[in-house]
């Protein structure tokens, strides 16, 4: 698979994943130190899916991220400094510091935000796909990310049905990390073959190893072409795992260390490094570079101004 791509591209993909990883590790540390407030959902271990999928998209495509969306948003091209500033609640943040981790948006880049309400993003994504179709925009799709837990929300069924029967240009990316907070997939859903969800909508579906960024990338690219050609939505089920806890307040009581270690061995970043065959020096250089990006982002965030009450009032209604 790797021979199809030049090394520069592979390194670029790897670097993006490393940025997401180190971004999340940094905010995890900042939360522990009490620098950041509120809560956050880290996707450490899910970078293969988040970055692999978003890098297969075009600038003009729309994405609707989940609550666990730092990787999805950065993968689609959100400015790391501005995302970090949002985590700090600063005015230079992607949502003016008024939203935080669950509300990271950059409409110019087609990023219609992470979302705090599980499943809600699918319906809105259908709306943007409807718009693309109505306006006959070429070479453009909408993408909605959602989790295995979200599949049990009514809105997910309703959205997939309407997308299918109205032939909307939308890609549903199901990030199956096997857990809905503390509950395993089989405890919450009888049929754990999530690919079969597509059947009842007569929708095409692909399953991928979500920890294999290249496989995710290729499948999303292919699905994108097919959606455009066949005028029909597609479901991709990406199987992955979150190594981090569900949110800031998670004691991991619902899973064992053995399972976590098993997945640590399938770390998507290590996997991609293996595929590329990076030398030690190359990795060190990459890591240094990424460390600098993150350090710069933190400095930027720290030195940014706070939003004001006027900023809030200004944003409630369109004028």
């Amino acid at each position: 698979m790797k021979n199809k791509y030049d090394k520069d591209f592979l390194i670029y993909l790897l670097e993006k994943m490393m940025v997401v990883r180190k971004f999340e590790e940094k905010i995890q540390a900042l939360f522990s130190d009490g620098v950041l407030h509120g809560t956050t959902h880290l996707g450490i271990g899910e970078e293969g899916t988040a970055v692999g999928a978003t890098m297969a998209l075009e600038n003009q495509d729309y994405i609707f991220a989940t609550h666990r969306g730092h990787g999805q948003v950065i993968g689609k091209g959100a400015d790391v400094n501005a995302v970090m500033a949002e985590m700090f609640g600063k005015k230079t943040g992607v949502s003016l510091g008024l939203g935080g981790s669950m509300h990271l948006a950059d409409i110019e880049k087609g990023i219609f935000g992470t979302n705090g309400i599980v499943g809600a993003n699918l319906a809105i994504a259908c709306g943007t796909a409807f718009s693309i179709k109505t306006k006959k925009e070429k070479d453009k799709i909408a993408v909605a990310f959602f989790g295995d837990g979200a599949t049990n929300e009514g809105v997910v069924h309703e959205s997939m049905n309407i997308a299918s029967v109205w032939n909307l240009p939308i890609l549903f990316v199901l990030v199956n990390n096997g857990y809905s907070v503390s509950k395993k997939l089989f405890e919450m859903t009888k049929n754990t073959n999530l690919l079969e969800r597509a059947k009842i909508y007569d929708m095409k579906a692909y399953e991928v190893d979500g920890n294999n960024a290249l496989e995710v990338f290729e499948t999303v690219k292919k699905a994108r072409e097919e959606i455009l050609k066949e005028n029909a939505p597609i479901l991709i089920v990406a199987n992955t795992y979150r190594l981090s806890g569900h949110s800031k307040s998670d004691n991991n009581l619902y899973r064992n260390q053995e399972e976590i270690e098993k997945w640590q061995n399938k770390d998507p970043i290590k996997a991609l490094i293996g595929v590329i065959g990076c030398s030690k020096d190359e990795i060190v250089a990459l890591e240094n570079n990424v460390d600098n990006i993150i350090k710069e982002a933190v400095d930027f965030a720290k030195n940014s101004p706070e939003p004001t009450i006027e900023d809030i009032l200004d944003r409630v209604y369109a004028k």
Binding site: K90, S95, L98, G100, E306, P307, T308, I309, I312, R315
Partner: peptide, 15 residues
């Protein structure tokens, strides 16, 4: 006030 609740820590208190 007549607005959603902001994330920013000090504003969240102040409003």
């Amino acid at each position: 006030g007549y607005h959603p609740i902001p994330f920013n820590k000090s504003l969240e208190k102040e409003v």
